[in-house]
Amino acid sequence: MKLVAKRPKALAEKPMHYCPGCTHGITHRLIAEVIDEMDIQEKTIGIAPVGCAVFAYDYFNIDMQQAAHGRAPAVATGIKRVLPENFVFTYQGDGDLASIGTAEIVHAAMRGEKFTVVFINNAIYGMTGGQMAPTTMVGQKTATSPYGREAAHAGYPMRVVEMLATLPGAAYLARVGLFNNREIKKAKKALRRSFEIQEKGLGFSLVEFLSTCPTNWGMAPLDALKWVEEEMVPYYPLGVIRDIEEEGGPKK
Protein backbone atom coordinates (compact mmCIF):
# COMPACT_ATOMS: atom_id res chain seq x y z
CA MET A 1 0.00 0.00 0.00
CA LYS A 2 1.28 3.46 -0.85
CA LEU A 3 1.22 6.23 1.71
CA VAL A 4 -0.52 9.22 0.13
CA ALA A 5 -1.04 11.48 3.13
CA LYS A 6 0.27 11.72 6.65
CA ARG A 7 0.28 14.13 9.53
CA PRO A 8 3.19 16.57 9.27
CA LYS A 9 5.72 16.19 12.10
CA ALA A 10 5.24 19.81 13.13
CA LEU A 11 1.53 19.22 13.70
CA ALA A 12 0.73 17.79 17.14
CA GLU A 13 -1.34 14.64 17.40
CA LYS A 14 -4.26 16.32 19.06
CA PRO A 15 -7.89 16.66 18.02
CA MET A 16 -8.58 20.28 17.07
CA HIS A 17 -11.50 22.14 18.59
CA TYR A 18 -12.44 23.96 15.39
CA CYS A 19 -16.01 23.80 14.04
CA PRO A 20 -16.88 21.60 11.07
CA GLY A 21 -16.06 23.37 7.83
CA CYS A 22 -13.75 25.92 9.46
CA THR A 23 -10.54 26.44 7.52
CA HIS A 24 -8.24 26.97 10.53
CA GLY A 25 -7.34 23.28 10.37
CA ILE A 26 -6.20 23.62 6.74
CA THR A 27 -4.05 26.63 7.54
CA HIS A 28 -2.51 24.86 10.54
CA ARG A 29 -1.64 21.95 8.33
CA LEU A 30 -0.11 24.15 5.65
CA ILE A 31 2.10 25.83 8.23
CA ALA A 32 3.20 22.45 9.59
CA GLU A 33 3.96 21.17 6.09
CA VAL A 34 6.11 24.20 5.33
CA ILE A 35 7.97 23.78 8.62
CA ASP A 36 8.58 20.10 7.80
CA GLU A 37 9.67 20.80 4.26
CA MET A 38 12.10 23.49 5.33
CA ASP A 39 13.23 21.31 8.25
CA ILE A 40 12.92 24.13 10.75
CA GLN A 41 10.79 22.50 13.44
CA GLU A 42 13.54 22.92 16.04
CA LYS A 43 14.13 26.54 15.11
CA THR A 44 10.59 27.87 14.85
CA ILE A 45 8.63 29.80 17.45
CA GLY A 46 4.96 30.47 16.85
CA ILE A 47 2.68 33.00 18.49
CA ALA A 48 -0.93 32.21 19.15
CA PRO A 49 -3.45 35.05 19.14
CA VAL A 50 -6.59 35.73 21.11
CA GLY A 51 -9.46 34.39 19.08
CA CYS A 52 -10.47 30.94 17.86
CA ALA A 53 -6.84 30.05 17.22
CA VAL A 54 -5.86 30.80 20.80
CA PHE A 55 -5.15 27.09 21.33
CA ALA A 56 -2.77 26.98 18.37
CA TYR A 57 -0.01 26.40 20.94
CA ASP A 58 -1.49 22.95 21.52
CA TYR A 59 -1.62 22.03 17.82
CA PHE A 60 1.98 22.55 16.78
CA ASN A 61 5.01 20.51 17.78
CA ILE A 62 7.12 23.63 18.19
CA ASP A 63 7.83 26.26 20.84
CA MET A 64 4.89 28.62 21.16
CA GLN A 65 3.94 31.78 22.99
CA GLN A 66 0.42 32.96 23.58
CA ALA A 67 0.01 36.72 23.13
CA ALA A 68 -2.48 39.29 24.36
CA HIS A 69 -5.21 40.33 21.90
CA GLY A 70 -3.62 42.11 18.94
CA ARG A 71 -0.13 42.13 20.42
CA ALA A 72 1.34 39.15 18.57
CA PRO A 73 3.48 41.34 16.26
CA ALA A 74 5.02 43.07 19.31
CA VAL A 75 5.65 39.71 20.98
CA ALA A 76 7.16 38.37 17.76
CA THR A 77 9.37 41.45 17.58
CA GLY A 78 10.68 40.72 21.06
CA ILE A 79 11.37 37.09 20.22
CA LYS A 80 13.02 37.76 16.87
CA ARG A 81 15.24 40.47 18.35
CA VAL A 82 16.52 37.99 20.93
CA LEU A 83 16.71 35.07 18.48
CA PRO A 84 17.49 36.52 15.05
CA GLU A 85 18.53 33.11 13.69
CA ASN A 86 15.22 31.45 14.51
CA PHE A 87 11.99 31.42 12.52
CA VAL A 88 9.12 33.32 14.10
CA PHE A 89 5.53 33.52 12.94
CA THR A 90 2.33 34.97 14.32
CA TYR A 91 -1.10 33.52 13.69
CA GLN A 92 -3.75 36.22 13.90
CA GLY A 93 -7.39 36.67 13.08
CA ASP A 94 -9.07 39.76 11.67
CA GLY A 95 -10.26 41.14 14.99
CA ASP A 96 -6.85 40.57 16.49
CA LEU A 97 -4.78 41.96 13.62
CA ALA A 98 -7.03 44.47 11.88
CA SER A 99 -8.87 45.92 14.86
CA ILE A 100 -7.23 45.89 18.28
CA GLY A 101 -3.78 45.19 16.88
CA THR A 102 -3.59 47.65 13.99
CA ALA A 103 -0.81 49.69 15.57
CA GLU A 104 1.28 46.60 16.24
CA ILE A 105 0.92 45.12 12.75
CA VAL A 106 1.51 48.40 10.94
CA HIS A 107 4.62 49.18 12.95
CA ALA A 108 6.04 45.68 12.66
CA ALA A 109 5.69 46.04 8.90
CA MET A 110 7.12 49.55 9.00
CA ARG A 111 10.20 48.30 10.85
CA GLY A 112 10.53 45.45 8.41
CA GLU A 113 10.50 42.93 11.26
CA LYS A 114 11.84 39.68 9.94
CA PHE A 115 8.99 37.39 10.88
CA THR A 116 5.98 35.96 9.10
CA VAL A 117 2.35 36.77 9.78
CA VAL A 118 -0.40 34.30 9.04
CA PHE A 119 -3.48 36.48 8.85
CA ILE A 120 -6.85 34.77 8.94
CA ASN A 121 -9.57 36.92 7.38
CA ASN A 122 -12.97 35.33 7.86
CA ALA A 123 -14.86 38.59 8.03
CA ILE A 124 -16.10 38.02 11.57
CA TYR A 125 -15.16 37.52 15.23
CA GLY A 126 -15.37 33.79 15.79
CA MET A 127 -14.56 33.03 19.39
CA THR A 128 -16.63 35.79 20.98
CA GLY A 129 -19.72 34.80 19.02
CA GLY A 130 -19.85 36.35 15.56
CA GLN A 131 -19.48 40.07 16.04
CA MET A 132 -18.64 42.49 13.24
CA ALA A 133 -14.95 42.63 12.30
CA PRO A 134 -13.11 45.40 10.42
CA THR A 135 -13.11 42.99 7.48
CA THR A 136 -16.86 42.21 7.63
CA MET A 137 -18.42 42.78 4.22
CA VAL A 138 -20.86 45.61 3.60
CA GLY A 139 -24.33 44.21 4.13
CA GLN A 140 -23.05 41.22 6.11
CA LYS A 141 -25.17 40.42 9.13
CA THR A 142 -23.33 39.71 12.38
CA ALA A 143 -24.16 39.73 16.08
CA THR A 144 -23.29 43.41 16.24
CA SER A 145 -24.47 44.39 12.76
CA PRO A 146 -27.86 42.67 12.84
CA TYR A 147 -29.19 44.79 9.95
CA GLY A 148 -26.06 44.20 7.90
CA ARG A 149 -22.87 46.27 7.93
CA GLU A 150 -23.71 49.72 6.74
CA ALA A 151 -20.82 51.64 5.22
CA ALA A 152 -22.21 55.00 6.31
CA HIS A 153 -22.22 53.81 9.90
CA ALA A 154 -19.33 51.37 10.21
CA GLY A 155 -17.19 52.19 7.20
CA TYR A 156 -15.89 49.90 4.50
CA PRO A 157 -13.98 46.67 5.13
CA MET A 158 -10.25 47.01 5.64
CA ARG A 159 -7.91 45.66 2.98
CA VAL A 160 -4.91 44.84 5.10
CA VAL A 161 -2.35 43.71 2.52
CA GLU A 162 -3.00 46.72 0.29
CA MET A 163 -2.65 49.01 3.27
CA LEU A 164 0.63 47.40 4.34
CA ALA A 165 1.89 47.54 0.76
CA THR A 166 2.51 51.27 1.24
CA LEU A 167 5.31 50.38 3.68
CA PRO A 168 8.75 49.61 2.22
CA GLY A 169 9.51 47.35 5.21
CA ALA A 170 6.92 44.84 4.01
CA ALA A 171 8.95 42.45 1.87
CA TYR A 172 6.27 39.95 0.98
CA LEU A 173 2.51 40.40 0.95
CA ALA A 174 0.03 37.97 -0.53
CA ARG A 175 -3.66 37.16 -0.28
CA VAL A 176 -4.86 33.62 -0.79
CA GLY A 177 -8.26 31.92 -0.55
CA LEU A 178 -9.00 28.51 0.89
CA PHE A 179 -12.08 27.71 -1.16
CA ASN A 180 -10.79 24.96 -3.45
CA ASN A 181 -7.80 22.66 -3.85
CA ARG A 182 -6.10 24.73 -6.49
CA GLU A 183 -6.26 27.83 -4.30
CA ILE A 184 -5.08 25.85 -1.28
CA LYS A 185 -2.00 24.82 -3.25
CA LYS A 186 -1.36 28.45 -4.12
CA ALA A 187 -1.82 29.32 -0.47
CA LYS A 188 0.87 26.89 0.52
CA LYS A 189 3.21 28.27 -2.08
CA ALA A 190 2.70 31.78 -0.74
CA LEU A 191 3.25 30.60 2.80
CA ARG A 192 6.45 28.83 1.85
CA ARG A 193 7.62 31.95 0.06
CA SER A 194 6.92 34.09 3.14
CA PHE A 195 9.09 31.79 5.27
CA GLU A 196 11.86 31.96 2.66
CA ILE A 197 11.68 35.75 2.71
CA GLN A 198 12.13 35.51 6.46
CA GLU A 199 15.02 33.09 6.08
CA LYS A 200 16.76 35.53 3.77
CA GLY A 201 16.20 38.34 6.24
CA LEU A 202 14.51 40.50 3.61
CA GLY A 203 11.89 41.99 5.92
CA PHE A 204 8.33 41.59 7.04
CA SER A 205 6.11 39.00 5.37
CA LEU A 206 2.38 38.43 5.62
CA VAL A 207 -0.05 36.08 3.96
CA GLU A 208 -3.75 36.83 4.28
CA PHE A 209 -5.95 33.72 4.15
CA LEU A 210 -9.54 34.32 3.09
CA SER A 211 -11.18 31.82 5.42
CA THR A 212 -14.55 30.52 6.43
CA CYS A 213 -16.62 30.67 9.58
CA PRO A 214 -19.66 28.51 8.79
CA THR A 215 -20.89 28.60 12.38
CA ASN A 216 -21.05 32.35 12.75
CA TRP A 217 -21.97 32.97 9.13
CA GLY A 218 -24.87 30.55 9.62
CA MET A 219 -23.95 28.56 6.51
CA ALA A 220 -23.25 25.00 5.57
CA PRO A 221 -19.52 24.40 5.00
CA LEU A 222 -19.82 24.18 1.21
CA ASP A 223 -21.93 27.33 1.05
CA ALA A 224 -19.30 29.04 3.14
CA LEU A 225 -16.58 28.11 0.65
CA LYS A 226 -18.76 29.45 -2.11
CA TRP A 227 -19.34 32.67 -0.18
CA VAL A 228 -15.60 33.24 0.13
CA GLU A 229 -15.20 32.84 -3.62
CA GLU A 230 -18.24 34.84 -4.67
CA GLU A 231 -18.51 37.54 -2.01
CA MET A 232 -15.06 38.01 -0.52
CA VAL A 233 -12.70 37.51 -3.46
CA PRO A 234 -14.17 40.34 -5.56
CA TYR A 235 -13.52 42.78 -2.70
CA TYR A 236 -10.30 41.14 -1.51
CA PRO A 237 -8.40 40.30 -4.73
CA LEU A 238 -6.11 37.28 -4.56
CA GLY A 239 -2.46 37.24 -5.50
CA VAL A 240 1.01 38.32 -4.52
CA ILE A 241 0.82 42.02 -3.86
CA ARG A 242 4.48 42.43 -3.01
CA ASP A 243 7.55 40.28 -3.46
CA ILE A 244 10.57 42.38 -2.77
CA GLU A 245 12.99 39.96 -4.44
CA GLU A 246 11.08 39.74 -7.66
CA GLU A 247 10.77 43.48 -7.66
CA GLY A 248 14.55 43.74 -7.41
CA GLY A 249 15.09 44.78 -3.82
CA PRO A 250 13.55 47.20 -1.39
CA LYS A 251 12.02 50.43 -2.62
CA LYS A 252 12.86 53.46 -0.54
Binding site: I45, I47, Q65, A67, A68, R71, A74, V75, A76, T77, G78, I79, K80, R81, V82, L83, A103, E104, V106, H107
Partner: peptide, 19 residues
Amino acid sequence: AESEVAAINMVYGAAGAGG
Protein backbone atom coordinates in the same frame (compact mmCIF):
# COMPACT_ATOMS: atom_id res chain seq x y z
CA ALA B 1 8.13 50.84 20.20
CA GLU B 2 4.98 52.36 18.72
CA SER B 3 3.37 52.55 22.16
CA GLU B 4 3.83 51.45 25.74
CA VAL B 5 1.41 48.63 24.96
CA ALA B 6 3.66 47.37 22.19
CA ALA B 7 6.79 47.91 24.29
CA ILE B 8 5.60 45.71 27.15
CA ASN B 9 4.54 43.01 24.71
CA MET B 10 7.97 43.12 23.09
CA VAL B 11 9.30 42.61 26.59
CA TYR B 12 6.97 39.61 26.87
CA GLY B 13 8.30 38.09 23.67
CA ALA B 14 11.94 38.79 24.53
CA ALA B 15 11.56 37.46 28.09
CA GLY B 16 9.85 34.35 26.75
CA ALA B 17 12.74 33.87 24.34
CA GLY B 18 15.10 33.89 27.33
CA GLY B 19 16.52 37.42 27.10
